[in-house]
Design a protein around this nucleic acid. Sequence first.
DNA 1: TAGATTGTTAATCGATTAACAATC
DNA 2: TAGATTGTTAATCGATTAACAATC
Lengths: 191, 191
Amino acid sequence: MAGVEIISASRISQDLGVQHTQVRKDLAMTGAQGTPKVGHKIDELIHLIEEFLSWNQTNNAFLVGVGNLGMALLGYEGLMQSGLRIVAAFDHDPSKIGTRIGGIKVVGLDRLSDIVTAFPPHLAIITTPADVAQGIADRLIESGVKAIWNFAPIRLHVPSDVVIENVDMRSSLAVLSYKLKQKTKSCVDID
Amino acid sequence: MAGVEIISASRISQDLGVQHTQVRKDLAMTGAQGTPKVGHKIDELIHLIEEFLSWNQTNNAFLVGVGNLGMALLGYEGLMQSGLRIVAAFDHDPSKIGTRIGGIKVVGLDRLSDIVTAFPPHLAIITTPADVAQGIADRLIESGVKAIWNFAPIRLHVPSDVVIENVDMRSSLAVLSYKLKQKTKSCVDID
DNA sequence: TAGATTGTTAATCGATTAACAATC
DNA sequence: TAGATTGTTAATCGATTAACAATC
């Protein structure tokens, strides 16, 4: 693909296995305008998509719960590329407090409310066990957090003005299991 | 809730903030039959849901990539409760090979094809970095794996008879960012 | 019985897909 | 020009929601 400066929606739809109309609508959302018979300028398109997804402007975030999942997120550079910068991590465990993971300092959970109030981030990430997640969410919201990215396997209750997005591995697994079950069933039908 | 043996779809829909018709349709999918004016027997309902989601029958799975994310999954009991048992983990790193994480042995990646061929699991979990994920998927499928749960941040190409389910944190983040952006925008509009 | 609940059938809504005019 | 591509407008499809008869 080196040297290619133009891409057509048709080509994108082929590569992605998506309807070309869908691709066109998505591109239109970003404000992209292509030229008929030619296509879209790649660099222009990338810029517009980044702008649409707010990847060009960084959101600061706090992370609560430095377990394996929390550490995985702290070490994932993809977040920074998507405009998300984790600026502090909180945990209960004394052996973790004061250490640095991926350059980010781990702070005691008891200082959560103070620090959130002092430096209110747009966003907080919850990677705690399920049983403490709601309590953490309450404290975060009380201190001014307006959006929560929840990885704890539990349905959180938040006020309607707080944005919440769940990463629910179990429902993803349920979908996978169901597909697998259906496939197995149809095989049996054929026999 | 102790002692409650009956639950109504109306009650579930209230608690979950979902349309009651939706709950009824979902329950009907599992084959549940309630009695008018009364509701559904809770234990019966739980059993039917577990059966529908195949939580009562265990799927064996291999996990490839024992990084932070892989370790998080190895240590997550919720998977076992959802009918997924990880029976072996694979990694490239010599310092990890031979160790046990959550009771599951870490095996060298070079033995992947052999072991998968010998004990073909229904399912494989990919928690490797993006750049090696496709290669791993190819080897797994070649050795007989029929379903892949992919956590690597990349779109995998698989034959149409292989079930694939992606856990895409970045698109989840994109949704969250978009919601946050919209909310901020509407605030400005009000001013 | 009256009221609450079930479960189905119809109506609405939105998203996806198809068709087509515009254009370089 | 002819053909490829864009982008919009119409049609289809599916899912969600509303309405209602059945029932204990």
